[in-house]
Amino acid sequence: MVVNGGGTGIRRWVVGWTGASGAVYGVKLCKELLAAGIEVHLVVSDAGWRVLKEELGWDAARRQDSLAAGLGLAEESRLRYYPNGDIGAAIASGSFRCEGMAVVPCSMGTLAAIAHGTADNLLTRAADVTLKEGRPLLLVPRETPLNAIHLENMLKLARLGVRMIPAMPAFYHGPQTLEDAVNFVVGKVLDGMNVPHRLFRRWGETDDNT
């Protein structure tokens, strides 16, 4: 995939998908970002590819084709995909300019690696760079129940300014479908990225959003 632009005035985010259940959250987030005209620099862990296969039926052996089909990409798009083993990719450097990074969904293993600075692959290195450069880092942990190790790692990152957005759908907006529940979580991530959306009815809004 080819990224258009990259110059002044084009918004740019790094997105990571990991092996936690909830691959649909990451897919929906990327679709929304691309539809908003935002450059997406995507890295997917090997476990993330397995979850994409198990939950969404993606062909993990044909990754570029799966991304194009699953995200509905045109021949040219604002998405750039990096293999997780490409530790020398652009997003591994602090000189790479972007607004921040979101890991959606975020496994407990990835969360622990970020919390302890174990930057041994591109995804965790990109997250480490995001932290050291003082850029927004948003994590969507998807695990239950949570043990003390999970909670301590989340607290450590939260104290560093990392935004924790657990995959916890709300019900005040009257979700009728699974897509409605997914949209709520993704909408909260977009709020944290300062990206306008209409994925769910906010508290106090009417059905016609007036």
Rank of each mutant, 00 (worst) to 15 (best):
A69S: 13
G100D: 06
N153E: 07
R78S: 05
F200G: 08
W203S: 12
G48C: 03
V15A: 04
S107M: 12
L56I: 15
R11D: 10
R125G: 03
G192Y: 07
T210Q: 03
G9H: 02
R97S: 03
A119M: 09
V195E: 12
R63E: 04
P136I: 03
A35Y: 05
T8P: 15
D86L: 04
V129A: 00
V51F: 10
M154D: 06
R78A: 11
G57M: 10
E32I: 09
T130I: 04
L71H: 11
G70L: 07
H173A: 12
I114Y: 03
V185H: 09
V2L: 14
I114Q: 02
G26H: 06
R11M: 13
K31Q: 11
E55P: 06
I149N: 07
V43P: 00
S21N: 13
G161F: 06
T118S: 06
L178A: 15
E32H: 08
L190S: 15
A36F: 11
L199W: 07
R159S: 09
M193F: 05
V140K: 04
D120S: 12
V2Q: 14
I91P: 00
M193V: 04
M108I: 03
G94I: 11
E54C: 14
E76F: 07
A126T: 06
G19L: 00
E76Y: 06
L146G: 05
H116R: 11
K132R: 14
C98A: 05
L138V: 14
G204S: 13
N153I: 09
I114E: 01
K28S: 08
A60T: 11
A74I: 05
M1A: 11
G85L: 00
T18A: 04
N121M: 08
W58D: 04
S107G: 02
H197T: 15
G9T: 04
Q64W: 12
A36W: 13
V51N: 07
T130W: 01
T144G: 02
E152G: 11
G16R: 02
D191Y: 15
A69I: 13
Y82L: 05
V3F: 00
A69V: 14
E32L: 12
G117A: 03
H197N: 13
S77K: 01
E54R: 10
K156F: 13
K156Y: 15
N209S: 10
E133N: 08
W17S: 06
R80W: 00
C30I: 05
L42Y: 02
G22C: 13
G94R: 01
V129T: 04
Y82A: 06
Q176F: 08
K53L: 07
G16Y: 01
A60D: 13
A69P: 10
M101D: 01
L151V: 14
G161Y: 05
V162K: 00
Y172A: 10
H173D: 09
